[in-house]
């Protein structure tokens, strides 16, 4: 058989499939579930340290007598944030991603099985602190909230446009620090609205409670259920 060429044949195979189709399938399952249960699900995205957990603590403290809130906490390794949320007296499920930079929709589907979702009004998913990766992964949420703290600098909308382009709400947090910083809040709002003219922006300080009322009002306002 010496000298016989191996019969190699090259061919192109068209595939044309969405790479994140699996994630999208789970996101669709979650979205359907939220709609059926009439739950407002919020996917909260920000850099580390922007104050997501503090905003949630204050929000739950203020609203828990009026509405039922639960939280799904994404963290790389620790359970610290879930413990902080449980201390406020509401359900919190921890997802430890073991180093992964974002949450996937199937992790949310699993977490939903562990929650008592009867009579829940709002589920907040606190995503991994990261302004890049989480924005690619639809979790089936009803609304996406991006948090930017003024200490991070006023160039973040320009540097991480993906997160802002896909959000429904922008919370500009830690506004109590503004007198100490060169943070041009007008510029940030302008930059953010350029990327996303439908973005609703609230200026808040979770620490001093300044502006938090507008956020609470938005959370509790009656809304027509979104179509799946």
């Amino acid at each position: 058989m010496l000298g016989v060429r191996k019969n190699l044949m090259k061919m192109k195979i068209k595939i044309g499939k969405k790479i994140l189709a699996k994630n999208e399938d789970f996101a669709a399952v979650n979205r359907k579930f939220f709609k059926k249960k009439n739950i407002l699900c919020i996917n909260m995205i920000s850099s580390p340290g922007s104050g997501k957990t503090t905003i949630l603590e204050k929000t739950i403290g203020q609203l828990k007598k009026k509405i039922n809130i639960a939280v799904i906490e994404g963290d790389l390794y620790t359970k610290l944030d879930a413990e902080r949320i449980r201390a406020t007296g509401v359900q919190a499920i921890q997802i430890e991603t073991k180093g992964a930079c974002h949450l996937n929709a199937d992790q949310i589907t699993n977490a939903l099985h562990k929650l008592d979702t009867d009579n829940l009004d709002i589920i907040v998913i606190e995503n991994i602190g990261n302004l890049v990766c989480p924005s690619d992964f639809d979790l089936g949420e009803t609304m996406r909230v991006v948090v930017l703290s003024v200490a991070e600098g006023d160039d973040k909308c320009r540097k991480y446009p993906q997160s802002f382009a896909k959000a429904n709400i922008l919370l500009i947090n830690k506004t109590d620090l503004l007198p100490h910083l060169d943070f041009d809040i007008k510029k940030v709002k302008k930059d953010a609205l350029k990327l996303n003219k439908h973005l609703k922006i609230f200026e808040i300080s979770a620490k001093t409670a300044a502006g938090m009322k507008n956020w609470f009002n938005w959370l509790t306002e009656p809304r027509t259920p979104v179509s799946p």
Partner: peptide
């Protein structure tokens, strides 16, 4: 000017592969 509307972003797609048959 910065008054514009933006279209839909393209999805992440696996378009095609080249396969070498044995």
């Amino acid at each position: 000017k910065s008054d514009f509307s933006i279209g839909d972003d393209a999805p992440l797609l696996l378009e095609e592969i080249e396969f070498e048959k044995k």
